[in-house]
Design a protein around this nucleic acid. Sequence first.
DNA 1: GATAATTAATTGCAAAACGCAAGCGATTTA
DNA 2: TAAATCGCTTGCGTTTTGCAATTAATTATC
Lengths: 167, 167
Amino acid sequence: MPNSARALSPSLRLSDWLPYRLFLITAAIARPLEDFYRETFSLNQAGWRILAVIAERDGANAAEIGRAAALDPFAVSRGIAQLVERGFATRRPGRADRRTASVAITPRGREAFDRIAVVGAAIETSLLSVLSDAERASLDPALRKLAAESARIDSAGWRELVSGSDK
Amino acid sequence: MPNSARALSPSLRLSDWLPYRLFLITAAIARPLEDFYRETFSLNQAGWRILAVIAERDGANAAEIGRAAALDPFAVSRGIAQLVERGFATRRPGRADRRTASVAITPRGREAFDRIAVVGAAIETSLLSVLSDAERASLDPALRKLAAESARIDSAGWRELVSGSDK
DNA sequence: GATAATTAATTGCAAAACGCAAGCGATTTA
DNA sequence: TAAATCGCTTGCGTTTTGCAATTAATTATC
């Protein structure tokens, strides 16, 4: 293949581009859920994500939360402050290393999480209901691989992508 | 099934929850690309998304751009302003209806798009390379269906999700 | 075992992004 | 032709972000 073909059009066909398609789906899903927890509990996205993390991993520290919720340390710190303010979480110094924060969910926080989770579960059910069994079955491992590869891409940074033909 | 079972634990297992998994992948992919176009062309997310839309659909108006890029009219208007300021696009009144804006990409804008598209294409290639042929084949229709269903969920709003067992 | 270096997390502040009311032509409807 | 509507933009107050600097705790060095 003459390389002029590529030079003429790297031509991302936007509507076919995988990251774009994932983005549109993710954005459409997130919107109604966000409306719900904002109106109902005055939580912002970071607050909700952190709440969800500590609902599953009670007592996590800020670094763990950040990793699980894709938030930088600043956002985590502010998000925790919001949850504490709402009475949804408590923050105490970690047992072993007192530089770390141990963030625990409160009963009120658990209650809020459960109510948001109902909506979240309904969204997931709706989504899965339009897929065939075969699609559902192959989606899981595919997403698992995509998660691993996207994490690699993220940590490697764009320079790796732009320099020579990788791999 | 006694409804107490459900009341006890709607228990979203966060790490298995489809919207969460999609979100993590999308966020990880978006980060390095955003770093690239921010550092290289001083574009923000909205600017890049609009640029990508007009690269494919030259002369689109604000409403079309908004739909394709998941942006509200305010964000579209400001994003266009940013592109015009950078010399990447021009804004003129529409031919038929002069209330609408016709946004065209300039040669400089095309050039910037092509350079960003190279990085974007590399990301996609990387992602697809970790999937088997079978996974790649079933991913496309699955995402198509998920896109349709997520759009429906979005436009219906959260009230539909929380009220009675839907469908 | 004092001191320097590193780490985890937070705070303060300036810059950027956002939400929304109001505005302005252009067009459609009555 | 007057009123209503539409497509888009602007202004402005609020919120969110990004980052430097800070604090407190821990680890490494001599």
